[in-house]
Design a protein around this nucleic acid. Structure first.
Length: 272
DNA sequence: CCGACAACCTGACGGC
DNA sequence: TGCCGTCAGGTTGTCG
């Protein structure tokens, strides 16, 4: 589910309830997601005050006045529910604020993860150290991409999904960005022209910003934390549109192929 | 270092 | 109605 725009939407929604509040109660309703919750998660969060919230790649960050940052990843099916009317089987972690608001981390497939790291060494956390630059950080230009992808023979689609290259892109927005830049997803990354990479460097932040503005995508089970659905999915040019007409000014039909075991959607007529 | 592939887990959907 | 196969937003580890 959640790529960068969905995580950003989630963090903003959570912040309205959680930022600046004291955590009154933490409840673990099972021992693990993808991996075990930290042993002392409840102990270190309970009674702490949230001093700031943010996002790195597809990770959400919740900092407290005890010098800890809780990191959450939503995996494929994770989401936070705010003040759920009743709890379900997949509400694995509950956080209750001093105002009595309840946040429930719900993740049916349990590909998500929660960690707790000292805030002053957050950048050294192994998973963060390996990440490439943020796609909205202004660092990714055509020139930068050209240098970063030089000599790489893997398909450009697969390179863009690699979080070590750029951190935060996922399957949907890679497909959409490649469409906008008119790049064939199968093209060897090192052989994409500088002109196309210039276009890509503009398309990536554009598509992400538009998705954030629309409140994140709504596929099968995404809703922003307050339950409001995102509407960006209605604007997809290629993702999930196999067999439908290309939205560009071309006679093409959107095709679905498999790369790295995952679906790629593109228009063979205008993405070359 | 690179690339291919499997594994993790549940739910939704389409075909029969 | 129900069973079965396929697919889904991501990451991580192994193997050649």
């Amino acid at each position: 589910m959640p790529e960068l725009p969905e995580v950003e939407t989630t963090v903003r929604g959570l912040a309205r309830v959680l930022d600046g509040r004291r955590i009154a109660r933490v409840e673990l309703r099972r021992g693990d997601l993808r991996r075990a919750f930290p042993d002392d998660l409840g102990q270190r969060l309970t009674g702490a005050t949230v001093t700031g919230m943010g996002r790195r790649a597809k990770y959400g960050l919740i900092a407290t006045d005890r010098g800890d940052t809780m990191i959450f990843h939503l995996g494929m099916s994770g989401r936070w529910r705010i003040d759920p009317v009743e709890l379900g089987a997949h509400d694995h972690l509950l956080i209750e604020t001093d105002e009595g608001r309840v946040l429930a981390l719900n993740d049916p497939r349990r590909f998500g993860a929660v960690d707790l790291v000292a805030s002053n060494v957050l950048a050294d956390w192994p998973a963060f150290k390996a990440l490439g630059p943020e796609p909205l950080g202004g660092e990714v230009s055509g020139k930068w991409l050209k240098a970063r992808l030089a000599g790489r023979t893997a398909a450009i689609k697969l390179m863009l999904l690699d979080q070590r290259i750029i951190a935060g892109l996922g399957n949907i927005y890679v497909c959409e960005a490649l469409f906008r830049a008119r790049i064939n997803p199968k093209k060897a990354a090192g052989r994409v022209s500088r002109g196309k990479l210039d276009a890509l460097a503009l398309a990536i932040p554009a598509v992400l910003e538009e998705a954030i503005a629309a409140g994140g995508s709504s596929l099968r089970d995404f809703a922003s934390p307050d339950g409001e659905l995102g509407y960006f999915s209605k604007q997809f040019d290629v993702y999930g549109r196999e067999g439908e007409a290309c939205r560009g000014a071309c006679p093409g039909v959107v095709k679905r192929i498999v790369q790295g075991g995952r679906s790629t959607f593109y228009c063979p007529a205008c993405q070359r």
